[in-house]
């Protein structure tokens, strides 16, 4: 084999599995550059958690239920709050995007890239859907394979050059346009305490104080109302809708209960850093809400499969319970850090 055509590049990089791709990639890249940060801390400081019901955005004919802020939010806000400067590159020409990636690797740089989940050949086939905002780290290249640390996968993986290029240049909503990124400047001292406080104020405000029916706890209540009023004539659609809600909550790399456990873990860490033991108690309460979300998911899934009679009122009541409990959690949390 011709060595110059297939040079091998491997940049040492520590793979650590995470629950969510974006918080996993950014905490991994920061750790690589000497700033130790857990995934929950990255997620919490960016104020990644949310709830939104967006019926005008359709995926496979079903409305969007989001348990977090939109893709890109974690990286943008984490780095902004900590004064970290990221280098971000997008490309018009796929071949140029691939050449740029190779150049970075050759210069010894690991980079995060945004991709579609569908074209990644190492993904289990049943997990491949057209979702354009997956994130992963490329740490090397061997022959025609990129060496990849995909934060949601438990092991290191490889992907053909061609497949990764296709995944990086998939078109449509949230098209990655070949986006690659890495931290360019990290301040010698980051003020985590201030960033935590700011982010908690943002999150709690967004969840409880925005007077819009599709966001925060109001959004959860709106969805509860919609579920209660589902037309029993439309069973096939209703099942798809419930299944879709559960997938958004559990399957799409959320760390369990639609990011609620991930955020509770952040609150525990924050309690020690801010020296506010009150946050430990609030983290426990949020865990209890997460458990309720999981019970909702299990019931909804069983109803999808006819292992349980379809009971929209039961699910709606569970959602209202989640909304009420979450509202209490965020209010106490806001009072705690104010």
């Amino acid at each position: 084999m011709n060595d110059s055509a297939h040079p091998e590049v491997v940049v040492p990089y520590e793979h650590r599995q995470s629950a969510h791709c974006e918080s996993g990639v950014i905490s991994g890249l920061l750790r690589h550059h000497g700033l130790e940060m857990s995934e929950p801390m990255a997620f919490g400081v960016s104020a990644g958690i949310a709830y939104a019901y967006l019926p005008f955005l359709k995926f496979g004919g079903l409305p969007l239920f989001a348990y977090r802020m939109p893709p890109g939010h974690v990286i943008r806000w984490l780095t902004r709050r900590l004064g970290i400067r990221m280098r971000m590159q997008k490309f018009r020409d796929p071949a140029e995007g691939t050449r740029a990636l190779d150049r970075h690797l050759k210069e010894g740089r690991v980079v995060g890239v945004q991709t579609s989940a569908y074209w990644l050949s190492y993904f289990p086939p049943d997990m491949r859907f057209h979702f354009n905002a997956h994130n992963l780290v490329v740490y090397g290249k061997r022959g025609d394979q990129y060496l990849i640390s995909d934060p949601v996968i438990d092991i290191l993986v490889e992907c053909e050059v061609e497949a990764l290029q296709k995944a990086r240049f998939a078109r449509g909503v949230l098209a990655p346009k070949g986006l690659l990124y890495y931290p360019e400047y990290i301040p010698p001292k980051v003020d985590l305490r201030r960033a935590i406080r700011q982010s908690i104020l943002f999150t709690t405000g967004m969840m409880t104080r925005v007077p819009l029916g599709f966001m925060g706890v109001r959004g959860i209540r709106t969805v509860a109302r919609k579920v209660r009023r589902l037309d029993p004539q439309n069973e096939h659609y209703n099942r798809l809708l419930l299944g879709h809600m559960v997938r958004m909550q559990e399957e799409i790399g959320t760390g369990g209960a639609g990011f609620r456990f991930l955020y509770a873990s952040f609150l525990q860490e924050a309690a020690a850093l801010l020296d506010k033991p009150g946050l430990v108690k609030i983290a426990e309460e949020l865990t209890a809400v997460g458990d309720e979300w999981r019970r909702f998911a299990l019931n909804a899934a069983k109803m999808c499969k006819n292992r349980m009679a379809l009971d929209y009122a039961l699910l709606a009541d569970q959602l209202l319970l989640c909304a009420d409990q979450e509202e209490g959690v965020y209010r106490r949390l806001r009072a705690e850090v104010k």
Binding site: G60, D126, G243, V246, E250, Q268, A283, A301, K302
Partner: peptide, 22 residues
């Protein structure tokens, strides 16, 4: 009572809704 990352190799609820989507 401390949060830790922990692996999960599958959950009934997720499996049902994934199968359904496919």
């Amino acid at each position: 009572g401390r949060y830790v990352p922990a692996p999960c190799n599958g959950w009934e609820a997720e499996e049902i809704v994934l199968d359904q989507a496919i």
